[in-house]
């Protein structure tokens, strides 16, 4: 970046990472129709994720899950004025090109869809649109950042309503960051090797004690208390997938999760927000899922 530049620079890292900074403390909600997007915006979502099927339905219906129909994405962009995100398959850079052409505000290169490449993720640097990617641990997060991800979300186990994997992933990332900050400089070379992450990023984390991008959490968040748990564990914000629109009263639940995310450290507010929400999504215990159906194991 040249400071004497007087023209406008589009798609810089600062601009890409900056939008995620503005989403902090907020809730990003999965929506499958324009009507749901309207409910999410009215309930206080900070952004919406436009997709054809929420993870719970992808899970129950099976088959290959792909990028959504452009008409659906455009109808959602037309309906709301908060940022609209959409998912591309891991490694499917053409789906990403299409989503950029549709002018989505963020692309989620997501394990919730069927991977298109079992070796490579998308090279995200050439794109003007920013990317968010999932991670289960620090090494995975740093590999995605090295490929150009401008935001990281812990993966959790999408479509289950079981928050245990999300808890594990955010705790793992945070404790691996803390461990790096305690290492002496000569130990960071081996640390980078063990994390399978670039040395320069490992050095940066060791010095700053935080990721260079915003860290949200996702996967299995279904209640206001779940969202507050993620925030107390150090997330910058939360994604709620199936948890809102697979519940008994999406409007009330969405608004309640927004409140609990802002007042995550105030049990009185969380208690009030948790009252009278009707049924939460039914959910599946992650331990009951056979390994091939665990989405968080996709991506590497």
């Amino acid at each position: 970046m040249n400071d004497s530049e007087t023209t406008e620079t589009l798609g810089s890292s600062r601009v890409k990472r900056g939008l995620a900074e503005m989403l902090k403390g907020g809730v990003i909600m999965d929506v499958v129709t324009a009507a749901q997007a309207r409910i999410a915006e009215d309930a206080g979502a900070v952004a919406v994720m436009a997709l054809e099927r929420v993870p719970a339905d992808i899970r129950s219906q099976g088959g290959v899950a792909r990028m959504s129909d452009p008409d659906l994405i455009e109808s959602i962009i037309a309906e709301v004025s908060i940022p609209v995100m959409a998912k591309a398959r891991i490694g499917h850079f053409v789906e990403a090109q299409v989503l950029q052409a549709l002018k989505v505000d963020y692309i989620d290169e997501s394990e919730v869809l069927s991977p298109a490449d079992y070796v490579n993720h998308i090279d995200k640097w050439p794109f003007t649109v920013p990317f968010v990617c999932g991670a289960t641990n620090l090494g995975e997060a740093l590999r995605r950042i090295n490929e150009g991800a401008a935001m990281i979300r812990s993966k959790g186990e999408a479509g289950t309503g079981d928050v245990s994997e999300a808890t594990k992933h955010i705790r793992t990332i945070r404790s691996e960051i803390a461990a790096l900050t305690a290492k002496s400089h000569d130990e960071l070379y081996v640390a980078a090797k063990e994390l399978q992450a670039p040395y320069e990023l490992v050095l940066e984390i060791a010095r700053t004690g935080k990721l260079p991008v915003v860290l949200f959490t996702a996967g299995g968040v279904a209640t206001p208390a779940d969202a507050a748990l993620m925030m107390q564990l150090g997330a910058d914000g939360v994604f709620v997938g199936s948890g809102v629109f697979k519940s008994g009263n999406p409007e009330a639940r969405a608004a309640a999760i927004v409140k609990a995310t802002t007042f995550f450290d105030d049990p009185t507010v969380i208690a009030d927000a948790s009252r009278g929400l009707g049924e939460a999504m039914v959910g599946i215990n992650v331990s009951d899922l056979p390994a091939p159906h665990r989405l968080s194991e996709r991506g590497w």
């Binding site: 601009v15 962009i77 940022p83 950029q100 505000d105 963020y106 920013p130």
Partner: peptide
């Protein structure tokens, strides 16, 4: 417009003086 139109630029801001603000 959308995030694709987000940008950085230098601004002359007389009340702050030189140099321009990024």
């Amino acid at each position: 417009g959308s995030q694709l139109d987000s940008f950085e630029t230098d601004l002359e801001i007389p009340v702050l003086g030189d140099p321009p603000l990024h």
